[in-house]
Design a protein around this nucleic acid. Sequence first.
DNA 1: AAAAACTTTCATTTTTTATTGAAAGTTTAA
DNA 2: TTAAACTTTCAATAAAAAATGAAAGTTTTT
Lengths: 168, 168
Amino acid sequence: MELAEAKLKFIETWGKLGSEWGINRTMAQVHALLLVTPEALTTEEIMETLSISRGNANMTLRDLISWGLVEKQHKAGERKEYFFADKDAWNIARQVAQERKKRELDPMIKVLNELSMIKGDEKDPQFKTFKTSIAGISKLAGNVNKTLETMIKAEENWFWGSVFKLFK
Amino acid sequence: MELAEAKLKFIETWGKLGSEWGINRTMAQVHALLLVTPEALTTEEIMETLSISRGNANMTLRDLISWGLVEKQHKAGERKEYFFADKDAWNIARQVAQERKKRELDPMIKVLNELSMIKGDEKDPQFKTFKTSIAGISKLAGNVNKTLETMIKAEENWFWGSVFKLFK
DNA sequence: AAAAACTTTCATTTTTTATTGAAAGTTTAA
DNA sequence: TTAAACTTTCAATAAAAAATGAAAGTTTTT
């Protein structure tokens, strides 16, 4: 396989994975492109390589920046903005974990806490099932939350080292 | 908050979470409904409660069964099928982990392995960046994979106990 | 063997999500 | 100050995903 072909394959695969996990395919593709590109790229270059419009490229890049996965760069004497992705997989994972926690897990936990409060007749099977199910999901969400907090702060080797020491 | 209201809130929230994670909102809602319902429900009841069509209910339930989250039940002397969800959050998490691993992580790892094979000029920055990025992602994917394998086989208390012993 | 009770399929429609591109906005340079 | 270089916005359009519902399929009962 040629390098060019491999890059395309990676962009396609990363895009597909993203879309399966609720991340806009184009956004994942732009990220993939930047991941396999040593230099920072301009909007123009990204538009051309991925055949997307200026508007799409602009909004996608803004999104990637808001996810903390891409940063703007400026080259001396040039007006254009360049975009560059952190290539470190652990940083990427932490960043994604942090954002999804903030955007999705934290609000979920908030709702679960509200729902846990509900009072009712302990003899009513409807009530009991509700209580028990919510409690179980709350507990799980709490454990995931703690693990993510640890991960977000952790250094890669320490984290996996810790995990695998026990799992062996 | 009334129980009925709380149920609706849970169904809505679970549906939203699902859609953010690439799972059809209706599918997550049907799952949520079954999670807070002690008895098994018929297609008819699900259709009515969630205001969805017969076709949608049928396909969604089949999907949930294929994810291992819901099972069919038959009541003696009745022709209708009833649907019931496992309420155990750890079972649900394991089941989802197992399916997503199979459907998404495993294929990703396969592609990453192919892409890792590529040979080229170590002096070429394009090539070097590609190699390094893919290697980093591969390593991460491998660690996630191992952790999921452990989790899928694990008993809940042992798993979280192990994780938190180290993280403290 | 025909009707009744129920489930599944799938072409069509609806809804949701993503993309386009031209116009408006902004910043720098002439 | 105005033109050039570049970025952002957003109404309109297109594409993708989900939902509908009527017809076809299946199994059981009469």
